[in-house]
C-alpha cells in the first residue's frame, strides 16, 4: 500500500512540476490541430488545466484503478491461494462479515492513499504559484475523486476473487478488463467503431468525472461509478457466501450445494 501511495504521489505531482519548465513554444502548440492528440483527450497544452487533463489525469486513473485491482485480488483470491483464508473462515465470523470488513479496510486504505496524493499535489501546486484559473481546492477534489475508480476496480476484483478459482484467473480477468477499458476509451476517439462500446469502459465515465476540474460536477457519472462499485460488492458477497473455500474449482465444476 505504501508503494501504491508513493506511485500516486509521484504521478500526482510530476506533471505539475513539469509544467513551468515546458518550453514556451511547446506550450503554445495547439494540439487541436492534431486530430490524433485531440482524440485521446489532449485538447491543449497552452493552459495548466489543459496540460494536467491531458497528462496527469490520464495516468492517475490508471494507477488508482490498478491499485484497487491489486488490493482486491490480494484480499481474497490471493489469501485463498495462500491458505490464510481458511484461518479466517474458521473463526466465528459470518462470511458476509468477513468480506465486508475486508472491503471497509481496503476502502479506508485507498482513501488514505488518494488523500496523501492529493495533499502532495496541492503542496507542489501552491509552492510553484502557477498562473491558472484552477484552485488548489479544485485540484485536490479531482485527485480525491480518483478513489471512485479505485473502489470500482477493487470491488470488481473482489467479485472475481470470490467467483473464479485462483488468484491468477482473477488477475487475468481483472487486468484484461482494466487494460481493455483504458485503451478502449483512449482509442475510441480515433476508431469510431469503438464508440458503441464506450459504455462498457469504466474510464469513459471517469473521464467525465475528472472534467470537473474545469466544468460541472458529473453527478450522473459519479452515481453510476459508486453504484457499479456497490453492485460488484454485492456480487462478491453473494459469490463468497455460496462457494466452497480452499477448492480451486471453476464455477461449472462446483457441486450443486444441497
Amino acid at each position: 500500500m505504501i508503494g501504491w501511495t508513493i506511485a500516486l504521489c509521484f504521478f500526482g505531482t510530476v506533471y505539475i512540476l513539469l509544467y513551468p519548465s515546458l518550453p514556451a513554444e511547446f506550450r503554445e502548440i495547439n494540439p487541436q490541430a492534431l486530430a490524433l492528440l485531440q482524440s485521446i483527450g489532449m485538447q491543449t497544452f497552452a493552459t495548466f488545466e489543459g496540460w494536467v487533463l491531458a497528462t496527469e489525469f490520464n495516468v492517475l486513473p490508471l494507477i488508482t484503478s490498478l491499485c484497487g485491482l491489486f488490493m482486491g485480488i490480494q484480499a481474497l483470491a490471493a489469501e485463498e491461494d495462500d491458505g490464510t483464508l481458511e484461518l479466517l473462515a474458521s473463526q466465528p465470523i459470518p462470511r458476509a462479515g468477513l468480506i465486508l470488513s475486508k472491503t471497509a479496510a481496503l476502502m479506508i486504505a485507498l482513501l488514505a492513499a488518494v488523500v496523501t496524493a492529493g495533499l502532495a499535489a496541492v503542496l507542489v501546486f501552491t509552492s510553484l504559484q502557477i498562473e491558472t484559473q484552477v484552485t488548489a481546492g479544485d485540484l485536490f477534489r479531482v485527485i480525491l475523486s480518483h478513489w471512485m475508480i479505485g473502489f470500482v476496480m477493487m470491488t470488481f476484483s473482489l467479485f472475481l476473487g470470490a467467483y473464479l478459482p485462483t488468484r491468477n484467473s482473477a488477475m487475468v480477468a481483472g487486468l484484461g478488463y482494466l487494460l481493455l477499458s483504458f485503451f478502449g476509451e483512449n482509442l475510441a476517439g480515433m476508431a469510431p467503431v469503438l464508440d458503441d462500446y464506450r459504455f462498457l469502459f469504466v474510464f469513459s465515465y471517469f473521464k467525465r468525472v475528472v472534467a470537473m476540474l474545469t466544468g460541472e460536477v458529473a453527478w450522473g457519472d459519479i452515481s453510476l461509478l459508486l453504484g457499479a462499485g456497490i453492485f460488484f460488492l454485492a456480487l462478491a458477497v453473494i459469490s463468497f457466501q455460496q462457494r466452497n473455500l480452499t477448492v480451486k474449482a471453476w464455477p461449472w465444476q462446483r457441486p450443486k450445494i444441497g
Binding site: 481458511e86 473462515a89 474458521s90 466452497n244 473455500l245 480452499t246 477448492v247 457441486p255 450445494i257 444441497g258
Partner: peptide, 10 residues
C-alpha cells in the same frame, strides 16, 4: 472442512 463450513455438502 465441512464441519467448519469451509466446504458445503453436496
Amino acid at each position: 472442512r465441512v464441519l467448519m463450513d469451509i466446504i458445503r455438502p453436496t
